[in-house]
Write a protein that binds this DNA or RNA. Sequence first.
DNA 1: CTTAGCACTTAGGTGCGCCGAGTGCTAACC
DNA 2: GGTTAGCACTCGGCGCACCTAAGTGCTAAG
Lengths: 337, 337
Amino acid sequence: MSEPRRLEVLRAIVEDYVHSREPVGSKALVERHHLGVSSATIRNDMAVLEEEGLIVAPHTSAGRIPTDKGYRLFVDQLSDLKPLSAAERRAIQTLLEGADNIDDILDRTVRLLSQLTNQVAVVQYPHLGNAKVRHIEFVLLAPAQVLVVLISTTGRVEQRVITVPAPVTEQDLHELRQHFLQTLAGTTLTRITSHLADAQATIPVHLRGTAAALGRALEQLAGINREDRMVMAGTANLARATGDFPLTIGPILEALEEQVVMLRLLSEMEQDAKGVSVRIGSENPYGSLSEASVVATGYGPDASAMVGILGPTRMDYPNTMAAVRAVARYLSRVLNN
Amino acid sequence: MSEPRRLEVLRAIVEDYVHSREPVGSKALVERHHLGVSSATIRNDMAVLEEEGLIVAPHTSAGRIPTDKGYRLFVDQLSDLKPLSAAERRAIQTLLEGADNIDDILDRTVRLLSQLTNQVAVVQYPHLGNAKVRHIEFVLLAPAQVLVVLISTTGRVEQRVITVPAPVTEQDLHELRQHFLQTLAGTTLTRITSHLADAQATIPVHLRGTAAALGRALEQLAGINREDRMVMAGTANLARATGDFPLTIGPILEALEEQVVMLRLLSEMEQDAKGVSVRIGSENPYGSLSEASVVATGYGPDASAMVGILGPTRMDYPNTMAAVRAVARYLSRVLNN
DNA sequence: CTTAGCACTTAGGTGCGCCGAGTGCTAACC
DNA sequence: GGTTAGCACTCGGCGCACCTAAGTGCTAAG
């Protein structure tokens, strides 16, 4: 009853189950995989695996299916991911290269990833931990209405129209802009607030109110950057994949739409590990996702934002992980330009 | 066999079926609704209704369910929508008032509407048929990189970073901006292209290339405005509503995600009718939505953009239509500020 | 440790009969 | 003519018994 063979059996069970959707029995196992032993031996192995909580039998006279714990071991055992096919790589490259602004890039990324994996794909907007202020623009739209634009070093542009307490002139606005630029240029977005407080003193009195309003707007724009957002695609895949479980699809859709849950989960996974990180079913702290697995990895210069997929626990982990990793790499590369 | 009573019978069938989910028979009908006649008479009426294709029996010994055509007649017969409850109206008001920028408003609108109706809610971005150029801004980010911002009279802001063929100075850019502003200020977004062509001549030769690039960018930004976009929420409701038809949910999710289909449908409905417009099941030209109904109406000053919901044909049309209408009204009101 | 053999379990498919809801039709009624 | 009561008829769904196939655990031998 060798340890390595037992793992081999687990691997076989997972693989068979993933693409047959049916509990797999000892006999079928020895037929499809040429392990050098008889079905009786396999049965013994399976008994042990069941004791260890790695597989279960849905009912007495059925084959076994992997538990979450079983998938976990399977995934951990996975040493090297085979790279994608040349065709897939080409598809990734051509699709991602056509994009220019960040929204477009992320949009294409999720579509791509969802098609590649047949799962729901999600991607966080890049974290902006060290993003700095690159440019500030104030545009006078009406006597007391100003468009405030904040551009960060990551190329992200956020804008917003605000009403200032008193009418201002183009002149004033220009002056204020110089002021803010001087104060904030190169400042990390997260530290805008403190810098703003410092500089109040140097502003002409009659513009203080306006300056305060503008400052608040800038803070908020920086805040939009900090507060994470995400993009997703391929929700239709959920319907197909969970075909037999129409009950579980509701909560998952809700979680996706709420975003908050997904975002928190992704942040947690970010700390988990370098490389592709996997959360399987019940490992997942949020009840609504207890039937689902998430495969994600970081991307970008410091790999601090996540891209990944969400699907049923019964999924093809090796291929999915490979796809996620590949897409993350190409995405990082594209963002470097 | 009076005509009015037959309509009454149809109405009763639709109402019963909508909230029982089960075929409704003649006996049950006379019990729940006090029509002054016996079940036999109702049976005769039902036979006629069936001949007219307004209802069908799933099998010989079952009650009847409305056909798409039946729903259609039911909806057309609906003369006055009862207004929402005070609580609902208050909810709408408080929720919508907190928003400021357009994205936020639309986002809240769909969430609200999806909760109100328990369906998937969608809203088109406001059409900009007569939107004009209000402001143009060029921001020099790097020697040959320019942020192009286009602001329309509707307050919509679109921006994009482009690379120009040759390095430009702040000075040049300022000059070009004046030029474009002069040429385009007050121009309808849809007519930008023609105006651009006219004005090429007056530009200094060494800036022609740059100007062309900037012009293209502006056209594209105007195009983003023209090309419709939409926001949606409540996809989880789909899973709940179509509980028994997990097969049909896939195509619907795809259609929603693709957006193109939905947008085209909404535009068609815009022309259909003033007031709340309804498309029922097979009336719908797109196969993927043949199991679904769409209830939508225009909003905004010229009611040219649509807001509405999508759900199974078996839905509570009166309440849904009332909710859609109410939300559209509040939305129009909020946008007027 | 492995294997063959065997008794045991059980989900799922099939055939059967019954019940109830619902219909269409006919003949009487107003 | 429209309305009603009565009745024969149809079928889907349910419960039941039965059987089969797949799969297991265990024991005893290799």
